[in-house]
Design a protein around this nucleic acid. Structure first.
Lengths: 233, 233
DNA sequence: AAGTGGTCTAGACCACTGA
DNA sequence: CAGTGGTCTAGACCACTTG
């Protein structure tokens, strides 16, 4: 008597994945229909569906109605980065967090910012610059523009107490956000703030956040040397 | 008579998300049970489940059995980066891809690599250095170590024809991979290869790939100035 | 022991797309 | 038009966690 094991959808996913990895189905090959796979695994079609959704999300297979499921040709490497709130990250390392407001004022944004936020010409925004410190040492420098049109009450908030990011997250949580990651050389101003030599290679992370189609804020975070973004999976 | 609209699971997800965003359920608040939400939306519990799975994957809510569903306290910003095969990326921009093998040999890896790949002391690996070019101009510099223990046949492959990455993807596809992103200053060797001044700030991407618990390869890719990683959504 | 989310099933219908 | 994946439903049972 054969013991018939009950399979999870994760088991089904892993068995399909294994068949792709060991060459049973090579890049570009068609997989059987969900119903046939379900029959061969002895499970319902829904379970195969669930497994396929996961493989499809991971970019391992491509599914099209009427056509079927195909093993992806050029597997992209997908890195999922969790970018924590800076204060949480610092406190999570057991260090003391402090935040220093350097500048705050209504100004006309440079074209780069206005374009990223799809803002009309001549619209003033709140410009904020701040420094994040871990145990008193510079951790990162923040250069932020906030849309007064989207968040009018921001002009009356005291940002020396709470960081702009945390106020926004609590009071105007965003829908979605874009990120751009690049390497930059420290200009003299940033170098002085972060206490490094001008020209030092630093990681820059730009984030634009949106509520629906209205831009909330566009922030550039430049971190002190040694900062890394890590993704495990 | 009220027209009862049929809701997709994405609609359900968006309505729950909207209630979180507009403050109906603030950070840390408990949401109703799936069954009650289903009743209030006029759909089955499965549909709420599907919506919740998505919100949970996105880090917006946290679900625990017997306890219920809670709005996340500290929303992390999640950036999903698709890192394409370099050749595809270059050809996708309409440029001509070329690949130049600079170095290839069996060597003892430095401690950093041996540790990242969890390799035993004294195990030689294949060390490969190469340059990727777009329309003849340097695009990125690659420094790669390949585990001979995991991929013995690699020593007989001609890597001047096909890049190591593409050979590996075709012949030893990996299970999972880790990424580390950081900013580095160009050392003289890299600077010469990429045709930039020494000390230029460059983006470095390290990737270690695995088949099960066996490391396949550990590669550092350093890109020419102006390279960016972008995530939208 | 009880309550919650996690998953499975079978069947049904919808949505997209190629012939 | 036909064939595939995408989704919904109702009901059932499982797995985990707290009391």
């Amino acid at each position: 008597m054969q013991a018939t094991e009950r399979m999870n959808w994760t088991d089904v996913r892993d068995r399909i994945h294994a068949m792709i990895l060991d060459g049973t189905f090579g890049p570009g090959a068609m997989l059987p229909r969900d119903m046939d796979l379900a029959a061969s695994f002895g499970c319902g079609r829904t379970t195969v569906q669930r497994a396929m959704t996961d493989l499809s999300d991971a970019g391992i297979v491509e599914r099209r109605r009427k056509v079927g499921t195909r093993v992806a040709e050029a597997p992209v490497a997908r890195a999922v980065l969790d970018i924590p709130v800076i204060r949480k990250e610092i406190e999570g390392r057991g260090a003391r967090y402090r935040h220093k407001l350097l500048h705050q004022g209504l100004e006309l944004p440079p074209p780069r910012i206005a374009a990223a936020m799809a803002a009309p010409d001549g619209a003033e925004m709140l410009h904020v610059q701040a420094l994040h410190l871990a145990d008193g040492r510079p951790h990162s420098w923040e250069d932020r523009w906030i849309s007064v049109a989207t968040v009018p009450e921001i002009v009356n908030v005291d940002l020396s107490d709470e960081s702009a990011n945390e106020w926004l997250v609590r009071n105007r949580p965003y829908d979605r956000c874009d990120h751009v990651i690049e390497a930059v050389a420290a200009d003299p101003e940033v170098a002085a703030m972060l206490d490094v030599a001008a020209g030092t290679a630093l990681l820059s992370l730009d984030r634009t956040t949106w509520i629906g189609d209205a831009a909330v804020t566009c922030v550039r975070l430049i971190s002190a040397p040694g900062y890394r973004l890590i993704s495990r999976g």
